[in-house]
Design a protein around this nucleic acid. Structure first.
Lengths: 233, 233
DNA sequence: CGTATTCTTGACGACCATCAAAATTCGTGG
DNA sequence: CCACGAATTTTGATGGTCGTCAAGAATACG
């Protein structure tokens, strides 16, 4: 079940192209004799849909790179509502805050089944000290997270409810790329765009009636052009 | 007007305690002969209130550390409204994205007169390569920005308008610390919490009537306890 | 098969956006 | 220093959107 990324059968897999760590060519530049010793603690694992990955206040000693599947990051607002603050897809890092804080800050839960690698922070820090180019990549991760937080502020929390939900679906579609777009529950949809579950339900009913959204058990088919029109801008 | 931080009269100033670069003791640990050569490009400057500091797409070749005063970061939403996405105070870095991107991403404008230092990114990268502890500090800056973005999502864009504005004022008070709390225009208040200027005006009228807020030309006095009650949670 | 959660749909009301107009402040130049 | 125009602010009236409350239907789960 757990296998170090340095094993031959791992390296050969096409998914490695999406692996955040592979992207910076860490493995290629590492001296061969260091590969096993350094990357042995990196554990590959799978997890089913709707499972908790991280909880706030958990001791943060590792980051997780998503190879396949989708994850939501959520928090409680001051008046006790759930709010989704970020959506992560293949190539993204979950639990980035482990690189700077002692504990995780947000709840992380899977939206779909996932395929991921657990990388202890000591490994990242070790490699960072040796490979300056990895440092730029880590900063890039922070930058990406910040950009997505800004997009939540500017797109998902702005304008009429229908436009927000349309933008949410477009955001998911972009995250998914070629892969099928994961289906969000009404509760999660509401928690992402700051409306009540009732309004989320009503608006999705409209979208379904118009054929703009087609729901299947675990995924959705979207009329992107129509959604862009509703999203405005 | 422009003076390197390494000049004697600068070092001696009490404000240096608030200087983001001083905080990591860069200067103390640098070999003496490197101080002048490395820090010469760091320029200290002042700017009046309501002045533009950075604009999106400007070439990003420096970060700015705020020694005194307050700055807002803003952007346009998809439907063309101004939205304030971050508020910065003494010790914060403006234009953090320069450390990773080629151009600035947001509009940065002063809320008050400021006292700041312009640090070319090459200087930061040079020092980072030599001093590992600076790297942790830089990551800390990204973390702080991300935390504030999350607080905007969870606090300022949630709940009734009065609660949002109360939370905004509390956030400003915390930023200011001992210093006077800067006065935000109705337009800026509205742009921060995503309401119309009319509602911002109406709600502040209530606060003024109740003595919860007292406005002076450039600053405000706040009844923090009352604001916390209105903020909820 | 029964219970709990999620989802749907409806009716109602509150909050806030919108439109409008007047008052005030600010900056600028006469 | 005053006068002028532009921008901001205030206040009111009105309507729409969405939250709230409620009850029933569907779905998931043990």
């Amino acid at each position: 079940m757990l296998s170090p990324c340095s094993k031959p059968e791992w390296i050969g897999r096409s998914h490695c192209r999406q692996c955040a760590v592979r992207d910076v060519a860490l493995f290629a530049h590492l001296p061969l004799e260091l590969i096993d010793s350094t990357l042995a603690p990196v554990q590959h694992f799978r997890l089913e849909a709707h499972a908790r990955l991280l909880a706030p206040r958990d001791p943060a000693d590792a980051v997780i790179t998503l190879r396949r599947g989708f994850v939501k990051l959520e928090d409680l607002t001051v008046d006790g509502n759930r709010r989704i603050i970020r959506l992560l897809g293949p190539g993204d890092l979950v639990g980035l805050e482990a690189l700077h804080a002692q504990a995780y800050l947000h709840t992380a839960e899977t939206l779909t089944a996932i395929d991921a690698c657990r990388i202890p922070t000591v490994v990242v820090h070790d490699l960072e000290a040796r490979l300056p180019e990895l440092h730029a990549n880590v900063v890039g991760r922070w930058h990406r997270s910040l950009e997505q937080a800004d997009r939540f502020i500017l797109e998902l929390l702005e304008g009429p409810a229908a436009a927000r939900i349309a933008r949410l679906l477009l955001m998911l579609a972009k995250l998914a790329g070629d892969a099928p777009v994961p289906r969000l529950s009404r509760l999660d949809t509401a928690a992402a765009v700051s409306v009540t579950p009732e309004t989320a339900s009503r608006i999705l009913s409209l979208f379904l009636d118009d054929g703009i959204v087609i729901e299947q058990p675990d995924e959705v088919r979207l009329d992107l052009a129509a959604l862009r029109r509703i999203a405005g801008g």
